[in-house]
Design a protein around this nucleic acid. Structure first.
Lengths: 184, 184
DNA sequence: TGACTCATGTAAGGCGTTACATGATTTT
DNA sequence: AAAATCATGTAACGCCTTACATGAGTCA
């Protein structure tokens, strides 16, 4: 919230929109969070309501106190969320799913990550175009994290798909010593 | 729950313990989930209470219907959780934190991931020791995911630390053209 | 005029953790 | 006998999403 308003004053609706579009790969907020939070922050003096346009929409601005609070919050160590990776959980019990089922899960995941990676390429073009601001180097850090993660995920998926082929071969042909290439 | 009991019958306490120790890197459950779920599954006939030992502790066993349910659940596509990456959020607004603050965050993260990676090495030894079961190949997939992710995270962190050095140089020395190597 | 977008706000509910109360069994 | 571990269960609470109600402004 404070971070968004540190960029420029905007409405709650716009904050949600920006978070979704710009931070969508690593953050999310819903309206059910946005509006109550905005009210609370106003009460605490961290944001201020700018003249509401003739319509009901009100634009919020971060106050100097809000900037201080933002820095405070940024310094707090990031809370670590309890892990919940549904894909890995399924693969761990993959024996009950079979190689074919696992392959489908991994392939779907791989496709999704590949789409993300393609998206990152476009974002990188935009960020490295000549209009670099003081924020750009920091934004590139987060982009780079996405790229590293996506490339690793794809490499893992490819390895895993190959490993699943081998598993299937073994169970299909029994536990014989000889193995031949995949039929594809 | 069903997955855990598919390995062998055990108490709710033991399920929690196993999930924590074995799946800890990608899954978690709390007692507040375990016991109500166990009760529900019993009512649905997916698990069965084995003769309670003289004490109050009761060991649960998965039923054939439970095995069917497990396969069903495994086939469902994994739910995608709304992203919440506190580290990347902080780096995105890194300008307000400064290169030094960011470096600290990244370094802390790097250290943590490196510890995980070291742990994975030990797990890999155990898994590749001669006692391979039918589950082993699937467990190796999840282990490999952890390794790929950790290596990528470390590579990213190292790049980012270097990038942050450059950012600091630039802001410290002004926007001069010449730049020299880091001290040390 | 009708459709779409911008905008606010809340109610209901789901999910999950934390913390505590409680007690048996085992180990030291 | 004390301390640690195994075990069950729940109450309170926090967080967050979804869905809806509502309406103003904009565009075709």
């Amino acid at each position: 919230m404070l971070g968004a308003l540190s960029v420029e004053p905007m409405t709650g609706y716009r904050v949600r929109e920006l978070i979704h579009e710009v931070l969508g790969h690593f953050w999310s907020e819903s309206y059910g969070q946005i509006y109550p939070t905005l009210g609370r922050l106003e009460g605490e003096g961290f944001v201020r309501r700018l003249g509401a346009s003739r319509t009901g929409a009100s634009t919020f601005e971060i106050t100097p106190a809000g900037m201080g609070r933002l820095r405070e919050r940024l310094h707090e160590p990031a809370a670590i969320a309890p892990p919940r990776n549904g894909l890995l959980l399924r693969l761990f019990f993959g024996r009950h799913l079979g190689p074919e089922g696992c392959r489908h899960l991994v392939q779907t995941y791989r496709d999704e990550v590949a789409r993300h990676l393609a998206g990152y390429a476009r974002i990188r073009e935009e960020l490295t175009a000549e209009d670099t601001s003081d924020d750009t180097p920091y934004w590139l850090l987060t982009l780079s994290a996405g790229e590293h993660h996506a490339r690793a995920a794809i490499a893992w998926a490819d390895e895993s798909l190959a490993a699943l082929d081998v598993i299937e071969q073994r169970t299909t042909t029994g536990t014989t010593r000889r193995r031949r290439g995949t039929t594809r």
